[in-house]
Design a protein around this nucleic acid. Structure first.
Lengths: 151, 151
DNA sequence: CCTTTTCGTGGGCAATGACCAACGATAGGC
DNA sequence: GCCTATCGTTGGTCATTGCCCACGAAAAGG
């Protein structure tokens, strides 16, 4: 089982961070896949949750994603009945995207499941460490904020 | 500038972790690219550093990478004169891969550069927090160790 | 009106990563 | 001496990701 990570790599915090983050992301994707969702789907749902009905263009801008790449996401969410898509009466080019009841329920479910995932991911830490860790993590995140959401 | 990450996403530590790790990985790749190296190249160099001369097969097993995908890496490192590749006299099918002087120098350079990267990445943390953070990070890593190296 | 811009959409392209089949050269079992 | 397995290598496939161009519908500015 020579599956050992070379010590010099382990000495690079950036590497370890990236690696742990990668497995976390993979688990999250797997968790969502069981409900037929992708990471982008979840991102869109969360964005719709905390903002007034948005157009696809606005979502794309917010996520720094190409608008054309949003099309499939919207189609999937629409098909699943998680969002509603009405023409904006004020500007009939745009859509107004809103969360449906089912969409909000699905989002809530995903959120609690993500919380569970967080718990297992941070399991090796003590409760106080957990809060300290996430606090530091948030500081790193806001400090190195980059354009986009990149689920 | 509605480039804001939805708060519900920020509530998911796994998400934040993955995101920070992603930008870290990207910066590391960019840093290596300036020296003509890839993340896999660095991984191979570090592996050669802490182990006796290995065959490509052994490296592939250790990294859980397909042997055929290692070929390009070896070619690049060989071309750059960072490794030496001799036939194993005991088994002329295998190669014996060793770090050259230049290879070790390049590895040292990359390591110190990575340390700098770590410093900028963890800049928002106080020195004590930094050590605590990396300690927790290592615990998470060893606990959730997965097969492979996945640069 | 007529021109220009914006919105959603379709198409495709290049880079990436993981994976697999098969080959020549070599070694090992017997 | 044969047969089988292993090593490095070639040359693919397949899915994912980000990016870019062009279109029709609709709006906005003259």
């Amino acid at each position: 089982m020579s599956d050992t990570v070379p010590p010099r790599l382990l000495g690079i915090s950036t590497y370890v961070l990236a690696r742990v983050g990668r497995t976390g992301r993979a688990r999250m994707a797997a968790m969502l896949r069981e409900r037929g969702l992708t990471l982008w789907d979840l991102a869109v749902l969360t964005a719709l949750d905390d903002s007034p009905p948005a157009s696809q263009r606005a979502l794309a801008r917010r996520f720094a994603i190409d608008p054309s790449d949003l099309v499939d996401v919207m189609a999937r969410l629409l098909e699943a009945g998680l969002i509603r898509r009405d023409r904006d009466p004020a500007d009939r080019r745009r859509y107004l995207i809103t969360l449906t009841k089912r969409g909000r329920a699905e989002l809530d479910h995903a959120t609690t499941q993500a919380a569970d995932l967080d718990k297992t991911l941070l399991a090796p830490l003590s409760p106080e460490e957990r809060t300290h860790f996430t606090s530091m993590l948030h500081r790193l995140h806001t400090h190195h904020a980059e354009r986009g959401i990149t689920p």
